[in-house]
Structure formats: structure tokens, C-alpha cells
């Protein structure tokens, strides 16, 4: 992958690397400040929803890469999330190598990355054969994968089996979740605007023509899939360390559908759409608590309303430049 270089250090937008590093440092400081402000001033329940939104944003952005940008239809995002959640929680809760290292905030960070890498690996293993399928068939294979992962964890008693894994250190917070959300955004944005990204977009537009132009279609599909799986795994790890408890049921088919809704609601392929979709899908059920047992009915009705014409919905950049609004 010669083009990976341009992912992180390119100067496509005329921004030089030192400035990027400085910008990143500034961002970390700002996030820390905001995090401290939020934690001391905002009601814990609202905080929880804000953080859940952040986790949703990571999931939405990463699935958007596959479903929106690469034009594939994956229904197995909860599976990758489960891999990330279980691997990282296993490291910090059950295995605990290197003494107490994995109990510290840094250790949890490492565990979350490890969870992401494990998810990426599983994405590679699943993606390699199944991305040769198209449309509905791919959807079915990824759906099956998600369920298989869930049932595998259901049967491993070392991670609690059906009763779940309690007592996970509560290390993720607003800062870590939103830092990862920004990293997800940046990496996927850079990926899409690199030459690899052009290839991914061309696969979405027309597989046969891009193949005839010399684009290695399966290669770029797998790249998109693996990057997407990595961030889903990271989101899973952050989720596990925010909830403090995970069970296989948390990562069922409904969770995958929820992420697909986040992507579709904002318009497939649109970055800002995925972000807003994630915020809506996470927040609406909480805001609709007012309607008690009817809230899921109303939630679904709102979704139908919004999904009436998804393509040109929020940002509708299927043919335009994703994230054009930031330029």
C-alpha cells in the first residue's frame, strides 16, 4: 500500500506536518478542557448520553466508510464492536498482564487499541472471502458473522458466557471517546481523500469500470472493511470501559441495524450526515422517554419520516465531495 503515506502525512490541503501535530496537540488540550467542564457541571445522565453519542459517532463514521463510501452493505458492525469490547475488557479485567498496567488509564487505552486491532483482524478474515459477494449476499454474510461472534462469546465461560463480564474498569470518559471520534473522522477523511480513497469511491460508483481502469476492487474493499472494523472495535472497547459491564446480548443484530440507521439517516457517504445520524439515533430514544411505552413506536415513526428520501437528506453528498461543507 504505497498510498498509506498520504493518509497521515500528506499535504494535499497544503497543511504541513508540524502544523498538523500542533493542531492535534491543541485539539487534545481543548478536549481536556471541555471534558473537565462537562464532568463538573453537567448532570451525569446527560453526560452519559453525550458520551454515548460520541461512541455512536465513531460507529457511524466507521460504518459510513463501508456502506457509504465503498458502496458495500455491511450488517455486521455489532460483531466488530463485540470483538473490540470483549478483547479489551478481557485484557483489563480477566487477563491483566504486566501487573496493574492494564488498570491504569494508559493501559486501558492500549487495551482499546488492541481490541480495535483484533476487530480489524477479524474484519480482514471475514472481508477477504465475503467481499467478493455483492449487495444482499454481502449483507447476509456480514449479518451471519455478527451473530456468530455473539454466539461465540455466549459460549466462552472465561468472559462470563451468557451472564456477561462485570467489573470492567471505568476508564473511558468524554475525553477519550471524543478524542477517538476526532481520530476516526480524521483518518477516514484522509483515507477518502487519498488515492486509495478515490479508488474506494470508484468501486462504489461502478465496480466494472473501475476494474477496467486497473483498480484492484477486492483490495480496496478489504482496505475499507478493515479500517471500518478497527474503529468499530475501538468503539466497542470504549463502550465496554464506559459501561463497566458487557454481555453478548448487547451486541445483537439490533445494534448493527442501529448503526446502519445512523448512516442511512444522514445520507450514505456523508461524514457530517453520519455524525448527525449518530447523535439523533442515540438521543431521540432518551428524549422520547416522555411517551413511556410508545416511545419506540414514535422513534420508528420519526425514522420513517426522515428516511422518506434518504439520498438527498441531510447532506446528500453521494456525488459531491464528502464533507464539502468544511471547505
Amino acid at each position: 500500500m504505497a498510498d498509506t503515506h498520504s493518509l497521515f502525512f500528506g499535504d494535499e490541503d497544503g497543511i504541513k506536518t508540524p502544523w498538523q501535530i500542533l493542531g492535534f496537540a491543541l485539539l487534545v488540550l481543548v478536549l481536556m478542557g471541555v471534558s473537565a467542564l462537562i464532568e463538573s457541571n453537567i448532570n451525569p445522565y446527560v453526560q452519559r448520553i453525550i458520551v454515548n453519542c460520541g461512541i455512536g459517532i465513531i460507529l457511524g463514521l466507521s460504518l459510513n466508510l463501508v456502506n457509504g463510501c465503498a458502496g458495500q452493505f455491511s450488517l455486521g458492525h455489532a460483531g466488530f464492536m463485540a470483538v473490540g469490547a470483549y478483547i479489551s475488557a478481557y485484557l483489563t479485567t480477566v487477563l491483566m498482564p504486566f501487573g496493574g498496567f492494564f488498570q491504569t488509564e494508559l493501559g486501558v487505552g492500549v487495551a482499546v487499541v488492541a481490541g480495535g486491532l483484533a476487530a480489524a483482524l477479524s474484519g480482514y478474515i471475514v472481508g477477504l472471502p465475503s467481499l467478493r459477494l455483492r449487495g444482499d449476499y454481502l449483507a447476509i454474510v456480514t449479518l451471519g458473522f455478527g451473530e456468530i461472534i455473539r454466539i461465540v462469546f455466549l459460549n466462552i465461560s472465561a468472559v462470563g458466557g451468557p451472564r456477561g463480564l462485570p467489573g470492567i474498569p471505568l476508564a473511558s470518559n468524554f475525553f477519550w471517546v471524543y478524542l477517538w471520534a476526532v481520530v476516526t473522522f480524521a483518518v477516514i477523511y484522509r483515507l477518502i481523500h487519498s488515492s486509495a480513497g478515490r479508488a474506494i469511491l470508484s468501486v462504489r460508483e461502478d465496480e466494472i469500470s473501475s476494474q477496467s481502469m486497473g483498480v484492484n476492487v477486492s483490495h480496496y474493499k478489504v482496505v475499507a472493511f478493515v479500517v471500518s472494523a478497527f474503529f468499530a472495535g475501538v468503539a466497542g472497547g470504549l463502550f465496554a470501559h464506559y459501561q463497566g459491564f458487557i454481555d453478548p446480548n448487547t451486541f445483537n443484530f439490533n445494534r448493527s441495524v442501529e448503526v446502519v440507521i445512523m448512516v442511512v439517516i444522514g445520507g450514505m457517504g456523508s461524514f457530517s450526515g453520519a455524525v448527525i445520524g449518530a447523535i439523533l439515533v442515540t438521543m431521540l430514544p432518551e428524549l422520547l422517554r416522555f411517551f413511556a411505552e410508545y416511545r419506540m413506536v414514535i422513534f420508528s415513526a420519526l425514522l420513517v419520516l426522515v428516511l422518506h428520501r434518504p439520498a438527498e437528506f441531510l447532506v446528500g453528498t453521494r456525488s459531491g465531495r464528502p464533507l464539502g461543507f468544511l471547505s
Binding site: L280, L287, L302, L305, L314, V315, G324
Partner: peptide, 24 residues
């Protein structure tokens, strides 16, 4: 603010979404 621009074409729908986001 940024999202506003590309939505311009389907104004009604965008108002709906904004309504929802804003109310949230």
C-alpha cells in the same frame, strides 16, 4: 452552521431535521 449549505436544495426536509436536532 456548516451543514446548512449543502442541504439548501431540499429545504423543507432539512428544516425537519434541523428541527429535530435543535429540539434535541
Amino acid at each position: 452552521g456548516g451543514v446548512m449549505r449543502p442541504v439548501f436544495k431540499s429545504r423543507n426536509r432539512s428544516f425537519l431535521v434541523f428541527g429535530i436536532v435543535f429540539l434535541s
